[in-house]
């Protein structure tokens, strides 16, 4: 039998080497900023609203992290902005799997306009990346602005990224000014979510941190009434309103 080792050399070794990694790398992703805008005015102290909010956001973090795991489109960065008397950044943009929420306290006025001004300063390039997805802005408030929110909002919407952002607002309790929360959202199709109790607050916060996140990042199945020309991003419906609960704010 004539058989040269040479001839079949391509099959005789490498039992230990066949698990070579394939070339290339991770698919390239876009930056997605997710920003919490939190009302910390004195009234948030009533009825444990601020505690409920702290709880709800902490509760949502693992879900947010899991959702972003399946995300082939976005590198999710989360930050938070607080407003009461004036407005301050409390959490700088942080990767979703490193994100931690520190409980916040409530006192002071409701300077929503200040918050909008602060936001408008970062919703431009730079500090935003050249390669992003529409940011997600989530406004949580229980009351009436005490400053000139109109100028702030105008400034925010004059930034292209402010305009393109997916803006969601959650009213904490019946006293919130729904009209202002609606003006923040802008379009008439979507409405502010009214959280009447801690359960629905938890539910809405989970919804914005998972479903809305993916609306910008991982496109979801779209329903037939989809219309690509009206809004920037198609957002799935919020969770059903809870029934049968009596604990209301």
């Amino acid at each position: 039998m004539i058989l040269l080792g040479e001839i079949v050399i391509n099959i005789i070794h490498l039992f230990f080497l066949i698990f070579m990694t394939l070339p290339g790398g991770e698919i390239s992703k876009r930056e997605l900023h997710f920003i919490w805008i939190v009302d910390c005015s004195g009234s948030m102290r009533d009825d444990g609203k601020i505690q409920a909010l702290n709880y709800a956001i902490k509760e949502a973090i693992p879900h947010m992290q899991r959702e972003s795991e399946n995300n082939i489109q976005a590198n999710l960065l989360i930050s938070a902005l607080r407003f009461s008397t004036g407005a301050q950044w409390i959490i700088a943009p942080t990767k979703v799997n490193e994100f931690k929420w520190t409980d916040i306290e409530a006192k002071g006025e409701t300077d929503l306009g200040q918050a909008f001004l602060l936001l408008s300063e970062i919703l431009r390039i730079p500090p935003m990346t050249e390669r992003g997805l529409p940011p997600v802005l989530v406004l949580l408030s229980d009351g009436q602005p005490t400053d000139n929110f109109k100028d702030g909002l105008e400034k925010l919407l004059s930034e292209p990224w402010g305009r393109k952002a997916i803006r969601v607002s959650i009213a904490i309790g019946e006293d919130a000014n729904m009209d202002i929360l609606q003006r923040f959202i802008g379009d008439n199709e979507r409405q502010p979510l009214l959280a009447r109790n801690p359960e629905s607050l938890t539910k809405y916060i989970k919804w914005v941190s998972t479903v809305v996140q993916t609306a910008s990042a991982r496109p979801k199945s779209q329903q037939k009434n989809y219309d690509g020309f009206i809004s920037n991003v198609d957002i799935p419906k919020p969770p059903e309103m809870l029934s049968g609960s009596t604990d209301v704010w």
């Binding site: 390039i125 997805l133 990224w161 690509g228 920037n232 198609d234």
Partner: peptide, 13 residues
């Protein structure tokens, strides 16, 4: 695609 700064729904369409 890489020339689009913010990939929103109109630019995706």
């Amino acid at each position: 695609e890489s020339s689009i700064k913010s990939l929103d729904l109109p630019s995706m369409s």
